[in-house]
C-alpha cells in the first residue's frame, strides 16, 4: 500500500525581505511517520518548519512562494483559517515555554479555547495528553501546582502534552531536546516513537544520533536548499550526496 502523504511541499521559495532563505524546496511528509530535518545552523530548517503552520506570518517581511498542501489543501490559500491550521499543525519549541499557570491549566488551555467546559471531560483529556507525552506519572500529584516548578525536561514534555491536547494531525518540533539531559531526552524520544501512531511528526534536530534514532525519513538542508531526502536508514548508512556524507560524518566546516 503506498504511503499517504500528509503534507506535500512543492517548489517553496522563502524570503525575509530581500534575503532568500529557502530555494525551491519540494518534499512530501508521509502520514504517521517521523521526519527529521537536519543541516548546519542557518540553513533554513526552522524557517521551513514554520512555513508548515504559517508561523512565519508573524514576521512582517516574510514572503513565501510555491505550494504547501495539508491533506491536499493549500495552507497559504486566502480561504485557510490560520487558527484552525495551527490547531491541526501543532508546534513545540526548543525552549520549553509553559504558561505561568498550573500544570493542569497549561494542558487544558487549548481545550478550553476550543469550547470544552465540562470538568470531567477536561480531566480525562488532560490526563490522556499527559500520558501521551510520557509525563503523567511524574506530575499526577501536582497537577494544580505551577508548571514553572517543573524541571526543564518535564516542562518540555508538558509543552508536548499541551500541543497534543487539541489533537493535532501534525506536530512540528524545533530542537525539542537540545537543552535536556540524556534521560529527559530519551523520554521525549520514546514518546515521539509512541506518538507516531496518532500523528505525523516533523522534528528539527542538531543531534545526528537523535535524528537516526527517532525518524523514519531524514531531510538534509544546506544553505536554504534541500540537498537530500531519504529513508533514515539509507541516509545514515549510504547517503547519496557528498554534502550529506560530509555533514553527517562531521567533516563539515
Amino acid at each position: 500500500m503506498p504511503e499517504k502523504q500528509k503534507i506535500r511541499v512543492a517548489h517553496v521559495d522563502f524570503f525575509y525581505g530581500e534575503r532568500q532563505a529557502l530555494y525551491d524546496v519540494s518534499l512530501d511528509f508521509p502520514e504517521n511517520r517521523v521526519t527529521a530535518l537536519i543541516g548546519p545552523s542557518g540553513c533554513g530548517k526552522s524557517t521551513f518548519l514554520r512555513c508548515l503552520n504559517r508561523m512565519n506570518d508573524l514576521v512582517s517581511s516574510a514572503r513565501v512562494k510555491g505550494e504547501i498542501l495539508l491533506d491536499g489543501e493549500d495552507i497559504n490559500s486566502p480561504r485557510t483559517d490560520v487558527v484552525s491550521l495551527r490547531r491541526r499543525v501543532g508546534m513545540v519549541f526548543q525552549k520549553p515555554n509553559p504558561f505561568p499557570k498550573s500544570v493542569f491549566d497549561n494542558v487544558a488551555y487549548g481545550l478550553r479555547v476550543n469550547g470544552l467546559k465540562k470538568q470531567a471531560a477536561l480531566e480525562d483529556a488532560v490526563e490522556q495528553s499527559l500520558r501521551r507525552a510520557a509525563i503523567f506519572e511524574e506530575v499526577k500529584d501536582r497537577l494544580h501546582e505551577s508548571a514553572l516548578g517543573l524541571s526543564g525536561g518535564q516542562q518540555q514534555r508538558l509543552c508536548i502534552a499541551r500541543a497534543l491536547a487539541v489533537e493535532p494531525d501534525v506536530l512540528l518540533m524545533d530542537e525539542p531536546a537540545s537543552a535536556l539531559d540524556p534521560i529527559a531526552t530519551q523520554k521525549i524520544e520514546e514518546s515521539i516513537h509512541d506518538l507516531k501512531n496518532l500523528l505525523t511528526i516533523i522534528i528539527v534536530t542538531h543531534n545526528m544520533q537523535q535524528a537516526a534514532r527517532v525518524s523514519d525519513k531524514t531531510a538534509f538542508f544546506y544553505m536554504g536548499k534541500l540537498i537530500e531526502y531519504d529513508d533514515t536508514g539509507q541516509m545514515f548508512t549510504r547517503p547519496s550526496q557528498k554534502q550529506t556524507e560530509e555533514y553527517i560524518t562531521g567533516r563539515f566546516g
Binding site: M208, Q209, A212, F236, T237, R238, P239, T244, E245, I248, T249
Partner: peptide, 9 residues
Amino acid sequence: NQPVAHDLR
C-alpha cells in the same frame, strides 16, 4: 563515536 555513512561501513 557512533560513526555513520562511509565511516560506519
